[in-house]
Design a protein around this nucleic acid. Structure first.
Length: 804
RNA sequence: GGGGAUGUGGUGGAACUGGUAGACACGCUUGGCUUAGAACCAAGUGCCGCAAGGCGUGGGGGUUCGACUCCCUCCAUCCCUACCA
C-alpha cells in the first residue's frame, strides 16, 4: 500500500526540524556571501498574496544559492509603525502596540508554515525602542552634519476632526471619517536635505544592477533639468518675481506670469482683496496630493499687477494659478501658451495672448512643445532652441535679470508626522529653541496609551512633552519611511544591543539581491539609497549603494485590480496553505507568472500545481535508491530519457541563474516527469532503465527543492533511506554536456516565409545538401513547381526559406 | 496632468539573440475505470472551413527573405505621483 501524500504532516515535521537544527542561521565564513533580502511586511494582520509571492521568490533564490555553496543570509522583520494600527485602535479599542504585536505573532507563524528559511535570530521590529533608539541616533547625526532643518509645509487638514490627514484618507477632497471638506494648512515640520545628494543619487544609478524601468523612474523623479532663473520686475515697485524655466528659448512667447496660491505675494494680496481671498480659499479646498491637484480644473485670477518682461520690457499680467506648486522651483512660472500644454489651456480659458515663437518648419499647430527654430523673437530668430537658450541666458545675465541654473524636481524629505504610532523625533525645545536629545538620553520612548484608549497624539500628552517649565519635547513622530530606510543594514547586527552596526555589517553588506513590489520603485528605494550614502559619509557603512541587484515583482491582481482590502477583492492565502500545503502554494506562485509581471489570481490553476506535486510523490514514494554501475550501452529510449534529464537540468539552471524565470523552469521539470516511460518505473525493470530513472528522480527532486522544499527533502531522504547519500541541499547537480549533443534535427522548410514542410536532416549538412533534401519534400516540391527560386536562406540547424 | 509598465487561444502563460506562434498548465470534449460521483488514466482542443486551404500575437502603418520580437502611430488596462505601506 502506497502511503498517501499528507502535506500538513510532512511540512510541519520539516519546519520543526529546520528550526531545531538552526539550518538558516548564518554567520560569516570563508564561502562567498549572499545577502538575500525581501522587503519586510507591514504587520497588517495576516499575510496576503503579495507577501506570499514576494517571500517565495526570495526563498527559492536563497535555497538555490545555498545549494550552490553560497553563505546565504536571509533575515525577516516587521515594518511595525504606521497608520493602520491607529485605525484599528479606534475601531476595536485595542492599543496599537498590542494589535501590532499580535499581528506579528500570527504572521510569523504563517511565514514559518510556508517553509521560508529565515534567520530568525536577527528578527527586528521597528516599533521597539532597541530598534528606533538607533534611528533617533542617526537623525541626531544627520542634524549635526547639517542635513536636518525645519520649515513650514502644507498638509491636508480636516477642520472637523482637527487632524492632519494622509493623502489616502482624503477621498474626493473630503476627510474619510468626518466627510468635511479638506483644507490645505501650513505647519512647521522637520525636513531632511535629500537634495544635497540629488546629483549622486542620479549618477550612482549606473553602479547598480537594477531593472532599467526602475532606474528611469528614479531618474525622472530626481528630475535634473537645465534651465534659467529669470527675474521679472513688478511694475511700479522695486520687487521682482523670480521664475524658473527649462525653456528660456520661449521667452518672447511669455504672455502671463502665474504664481502659486500659497506664494507670499498671493497671501499678502488676499489681505487687501476679498476676491483674491475667496479665490485662495477655493484653491485650498483640495488635497495636497499631486495627482489630485493636477487633475483638478485649472483656475486662475488676475491680480491686476503687471510684471515687466526682462527683454521686451512690455507689461505682462500676473495671475494666481492653482496649478503652480509652491514647493517646486520658485513657486512662480512664466506662461508660454504657444509652447506648453498647460499654459495653452489656461490662456485659452482666460483669453490671454497666444504667440508662436518656435517653429518646426511644417504643421505649426499650437501648442508646439518640442524644441525647434525661433520665430517672432527679434534678434534670436532662426536660431535653434538650444543655441537661443544659451544666448538668451547670457543676455539676461549681463542685464542682471537672470542666470543659467540646474534645477532638480526632487524636493527635501519632510519627515514630521502628527501621529501617535511612530518613532518620536528626539528633539527638545528649551525656551522654544530646538535641541537634539543627548545620545545618553536615547531612546526617547513612545509612551503607552491608557487601557482601551483611542490614539492620543503626543501633542495632547502633557506627561510626555512637559519635561519642565522651560523644556518641552517635540511631539511629532517620524514618517515610517524613516524606519524602513535603514533596516537592511540593521539586520546584520539586529541582536547587538551595544552597537548599531558591527563587523557582521561589513561582511554582509551590501544586499546582494533585494526583492519587493514594483510599487516601491521610487520612494522607499530612493530614501534607502539616500540613507546609505549619508551613513557612508559618517563612516558607518561601506560602499555607495545598499542594494546591488533588484528584483521587482509585479502585483498580485484579482479581476484586473490590485488585491486590497478597500477593493474587497482579497484572497486569503491561508486557506490554500491549509487545503493544499505550502509546497503547492509556493509552486503555484512560481509557476503562474514570471516574477516581474503582475499575477492574475486564478482559483483553478492551484489544482494543477497540486496535481503535479502528487505525481512526483507517486513516482518516488514506492521506490528506494539502489546503487547501479553505469551500463556500457544504452538503448535509444534510455538515451532519450538521459538527454531529456540533462537538458532539463541545463534549462532549469539557466532559468534560475540568468533570469529568475521560475515558471519556465517548472514547466520543463513537468516535461521531464511526463517524459519518463511507464516501463522504466516498474519494480522489475532492467538495471539500465533503473539507472536512468535514478538519474531522472535525482534531477527532479534536486531542481524542485528550492521551490517545494518540504516534499523534495522528504522524498529525497525516503529514497536514500538505505543508502548513504548527502542531503538534498548539499549540492546542485552538474549538467553532462556530452549527453546533449544531437546529430539530427527537424528542418523547417518555408516558401516566402510560410511553413510548407518539415524533414529530419543531419546537423552537418551544408546548404546545398539541405536545399536538395528540402526540395524533395512532397508539399514543398508541389508548391515550388513552375516557380523560380530567387534566393534561399538557410539558418543552420533550424530553417530554410525559399524566396520565389 | 506627469512618470513607468502591460496587451498572445475560453483562462494563466511560452517563444531567451528577428527564424516552426500557442511549450507547460487550467478549463472544456470524448473514451476508460466506477453502482454513482470524486480522484486517476488515455485521446483531442487557436479561429473559420466538410475539405483543400485561409486567417491569426490590442488597432492601423512601416522595415525585412522572414516580425509576438525592431520603428512610427492610435487605443485599452494597471502601478507610482512625495502623509497607505
Amino acid at each position: 500500500m502506497v502511503p498517501e501524500y499528507n502535506p500538513s504532516k510532512i511540512e510541519k515535521t520539516a519546519q520543526e526540524k529546520w528550526l531545531k537544527e538552526g539550518r538558516f542561521k548564518s554567520k560569516p565564513d570563508n564561502r562567498q556571501k549572499y545577502y538575500c533580502l525581501s522587503m519586510f511586511p507591514y504587520p497588517s494582520g495576516k499575510l496576503h498574496m503579495g507577501h506570499v509571492r514576494n517571500y517565495t521568490i526570495g526563498d527559492v533564490i536563497s535555497r538555490y544559492k545555498r545549494m550552490n555553496n553560497f553563505n546565504v543570509f536571509q533575515p525577516m522583520g516587521w515594518d511595525a509603525f504606521g497608520l493602520p494600527a491607529e485605525n484599528a485602535a479606534i475601531a476595536n479599542k485595542v492599543s496599537p502596540k498590542d494589535w501590532t504585536n499580535q499581528n506579528i505573532e500570527h504572521m510569523k507563524k504563517q511565514l514559518i508554515s510556508l517553509g521560508l528559511g529565515y534567520d530568525w535570530s536577527k528578527e527586528l521590529r521597528t516599533c521597539e525602542p532597541q530598534y528606533y533608539k538607533w534611528e533617533q541616533l542617526i537623525f541626531k547625526k544627520f542634524y549635526e552634519k547639517g542635513l536636518v532643518y525645519k520649515k513650514k509645509s502644507i498638509v491636508n487638514w480636516d477642520p472637523v476632526d482637527e487632524t492632519v490627514l494622509a493623502n489616502e484618507q482624503v477621498i474626493d477632497g473630503k476627510g474619510w471619517r468626518s466627510g468635511a471638506k479638506v483644507e490645505l494648512k501650513e505647519i512647521d515640520q522637520w525636513f531632511i536635505k535629500i537634495t544635497d545628494y540629488a546629483d549622486e543619487l542620479l549618477s550612482s544609478l549606473d553602479e547598480v544592477d537594477w531593472p532599467e524601468n526602475v532606474k528611469t523612474m528614479q531618474k525622472n523623479w530626481i528630475g535634473k533639468s537645465h534651465g534659467a532663473e529669470i527675474k521679472y520686475q513688478i511694475a511700479d515697485t522695486s520687487k521682482y518675481l523670480t521664475v524658473f524655466s527649462t525653456r528660456p528659448d520661449t521667452i518672447y512667447g511669455v504672455s502671463f506670469i502665474a504664481i502659486s496660491p500659497n506664494h507670499e505675494i498671493a497671501l499678502d494680496l488676499a489681505e487687501k482683496d476679498s476676491q483674491v481671498k475667496n479665490f485662495l480659499n477655493k484653491c485650498n479646498e483640495t488635497s495636497s496630493a499631486e495627482a489630485y491637484m493636477t487633475k483638478a480644473e485649472k483656475l486662475g485670477i488676475d491680480t491686476g499687477m503687471k510684471a515687466i518682461h526682462p527683454i521686451t520690457k512690455k507689461n505682462i499680467p500676473v495671475w494666481i494659478g492653482n496649478f503652480v506648486l509652491l514647493d517646486y522651483g520658485t513657486g512662480v512660472v512664466m506662461g508660454v501658451p504657444g509652447h506648453d500644454q498647460r499654459d495653452f489651456e489656461f490662456a485659452s480659458k482666460y483669453n490671454l495672448d497666444i504667440t508662436q515663437v518656435i517653429s518646426l518648419g511644417s504643421d505649426d499647430a499650437l501648442p508646439i512643445t518640442n524644441k525647434g527654430t525661433l520665430v517672432n523673437s527679434d534678434i534670436y530668430n532662426d536660431l535653434s532652441s538650444d543655441d537661443a537658450s544659451l544666448k538668451i541666458i547670457s543676455q539676461l545675465k549681463s542685464d542682471e535679470l537672470g542666470e543659467g541654473l540646474v534645477q532638480f524636481r526632487l524636493r527635501d524629505w519632510g519627515v514630521s508626522r502628527q501621529r501617535y504610532w511612530g518613532c518620536p523625533i528626539p528633539v527638545i525645545y528649551e525656551n522654544g529653541e530646538a535641541k537634539l536629545v543627548e545620545e545618553k538620553d536615547l531612546p526617547v520612548t513612545l509612551p503607552d496609551l491608557p487601557e482601551k484608549s483611542a490614539p492620543i497624539p503626543l501633542s495632547q500628552n502633557k506627561d510626555f512633552y512637559n519635561v519642565s517649565e522651560e523644556i518641552k519635547r517635540e511631539t511629532d513622530t517620524f514618517d515610517t519611511f524613516m524606519d524602513s530606510s535603514w533596516y537592511y543594514a540593521r539586520f546584520t547586527a539586529a541582536d547587538n544591543e551595544s552597537e548599531i552596526f558591527d563587523e557582521n555589517t561589513k561582511y554582509w553588506l551590501p544586499v546582494d539581491l533585494y526583492i519587493g513590489g514594483i510599487e516601491h520603485a521610487i520612494l522607499h528605494l530612493l530614501y534607502s539609497r539616500f540613507f546609505h550614502k549619508a551613513l557612508r559619509d559618517m563612516g558607518m557603512v561601506d560602499g555607495n549603494e545598499p542594494f546591488k541587484k533588484l528584483l521587482t515583482q509585479g502585483m498580485v491582481l484579482k479581476d484586473g485590480a490590485k488585491m486590497s482590502k478597500s477593493k474587497g477583492n482579497t484572497v486569503d492565502p491561508q486557506s490554500y496553505i491549509d487545503k493544499y500545503g505550502a509546497d503547492t502554494v509556493r509552486l503555484y506562485m512560481m509557476f503562474t507568472a514570471p516574477p516581474e509581471q503582475s499575477l492574475e489570481w486564478s482559483e483553478s490553476s492551484v489544482e494543477g500545481a497540486s496535481r503535479f506535486i502528487k505525481k512526483v510523490w507517486n513516482l518516488v514514494i514506492d521506490k528506494k535508491y539502489i546503487s547501479i554501475d553505469m551500463p556500457n550501452k544504452f538503448s535509444k529510449e534510455e538515451m532519450d530519457l538521459r538527454r531529456k534529464t540533462h537538458s532539463t537540468l541545463k534549462k532549469v539552471t539557466s532559468d534560475f541563474e540568468s533570469r529568475f524565470s521560475f515558471n519556465t523552469a517548472i514547466a520543463s521539470i513537468m516535461e521531464l516527469l511526463n517524459a519518463i516511460p511507464e516501463d522504466f518505473k516498474k519494480s522489475d525493470a532492467a538495471d539500465s532503465k533503473k539507472f536512468c530513472l535514478n538519474e531522472s528522480i535525482t534531477i527532479i527532486l534536486k531542481t524542485l527543492n528550492p521551490i517545494a522544499p518540504h516534499i523534495s527533502e522528504f522524498l529525497w531522504d525516503h529514497f536514500h533511506q538505505e543508502s548513504s547519500l548527502d542531503s538534498i541541499e548539499s549540492s546542485w547537480p552538474e549538467v553532462q554536456e556530452n549527453l546533449l549533443e544531437v546529430s539530427e534535427f527537424e528542418l523547417v522548410i518555408q516558401i516566402n516565409g510560410k511553413v510548407r514542410g518539415k524533414v529530419l536532416a543531419d546537423i552537418d549538412f551544408d546548404q546545398d545538401k539541405i536545399e536538395e533534401i528540402a526540395k524533395k519534400v512532397e508539399n514543398v516540391s508541389s508548391n515550388l513547381e513552375g516557380k523560380d527560386i530567387k534566393k534561399s536562406i538557410y539558418i543552420k540547424g533550424k530553417i530554410i526559406n525559399f524566396v520565389v
